[in-house]
């Protein structure tokens, strides 16, 4: 059962700043002595359309924060961020641009 995820998307002039907090142990091979558990894929969708497909590795530490800037955007746009880890666990969160 994945831990909570929280996102904030704020409109600037001609861009949208997004910050998403994810709960995840991001445990490395070395830390777990051969049983790593980390997010591998991150997907960002705006109004249902995929805009970012990211891959991250076990180099990222526990409870990652992902901040990024999207060109354009308008109030009310639906941003969805989802992740998939190496064990097949997933989680996602959705927010409207404020």
């Amino acid at each position: 059962m994945a831990g909570p995820m929280k996102m904030r998307a704020t409109l600037g002039s001609g861009y949208t700043d997004v910050r998403v907090l994810m709960t995840h142990p991001m445990a490395t091979e070395q830390q777990t002595k051969g049983n790593p558990h980390f997010i591998q894929n991150l997907t960002v969708k705006v109004n249902g359309k995929t805009v970012i497909e990211g891959e991250i590795s076990q180099a990222v530490s526990r409870n990652p924060v992902f901040t990024f800037r999207l060109a354009g955007g308008a109030k009310g746009d639906k941003i969805e961020v989802s992740w998939l880890d190496n064990k097949g666990d997933t989680n996602k969160t959705e927010t409207a641009v404020a």
Binding site: L21, T23, T67
Partner: peptide, 14 residues
């Protein structure tokens, strides 16, 4: 700036 405080508050609300 990037503290996971909010995650704990969310879990607490649950």
């Amino acid at each position: 700036e990037n503290a996971p405080i909010e995650l704990y508050e969310l879990a607490g609300e649950e």
